[in-house]
Amino acid sequence: MSAEQALQYCLAGVTVGSIYAIVAIGFNIIYNTTGIINFAQGEFVVLGAMTAISLHTVTPLPLAVAGAVAITAAAGGLIGAGLTRAVKRPTVLRLIIVTIGLSIVLRAAVLHIWDEKVRALPFFTGTEVSSVGFFGARITPQALWVLGICAVTVAGLTLFFRHTLTGRAMRACAANRTAAGLCGIPVGRMVTLSFTLSAAIGALAGCAISPVTQTQYDMGAPLAIKGFTVAILGGMGNSLAAVAAGLLLGVLESFSICIFPLAYQHAVSIAVLLAVLVFRPSGLFGSRDVSALKEH
């Protein structure tokens, strides 16, 4: 294999990995506040992309993306508010099961509002055929956009969760709900906020990846599975780790193609996940102590 080809595998892995990463970030926000895994996260991605595609027929692209993020965030907030009020004794397991139901409802809703057809947003820069040269290998500029958006989102979230009062209050809710409530933190409102935020980031992810992956009503679940895998691989709750794990998994899958037939690609990534769960259950970049505390 020539160096140029190896680099091309690497860049192909980065393209795929950036998609995994940006979807994985959304999982972490709700987890950080509630300790639950939102299985409807993939549907937020599809909803955001579909809304943007519809808005783009009447407004320019940046406005369409902003509008889609706002609309999806509002939908996410409503869902979060509804959930916390409707579910009596909202234990983690119950809420997780509710999100599975939610994902089915949202998928059906997207199918009925739009239809079964494949759509795509235009590339943010360039067209379908443009690519950026990199020592003889090539990558679509959209992958760089996705990575850039990942970077900005992760930086923003880190600042928010570590250095703002609201962010810290949200983390407190996940650490100990009762204690957070006793300290005067409005737990319900924090959960609503986390759904709003993760829906917004899901929508942003959907818009960013749509030119590359194309968007169809039922692509949420496979995306969510990969995003979830990556979130676990990195260590739940840590957005930066999710991005690193996403890129790692993407590159790994990509290089697996040059040795094994393509059909084994997913087997490779699942094998990696199993190995990590067995040997480092807190994730590649997670702290054992923290995850041990969260078990209780």
């Binding site: 080809q5 091309q8 595998y9 860049l11 192909a12 892995g13 393209t15 795929v16 998609i19 990846i209 590359v212 992956t213 194309q214 692509m219 496979p222 995306l223 899958e253 990509s254 193609i257 037939p261 393509l262 059909a263 690609q265 997913h266």
Partner: peptide, 15 residues
Amino acid sequence: EVYDKGATDLTGVLN
């Protein structure tokens, strides 16, 4: 080569 029917990127196998 055979790819997944829900594939979202094929640059690896095309390479």
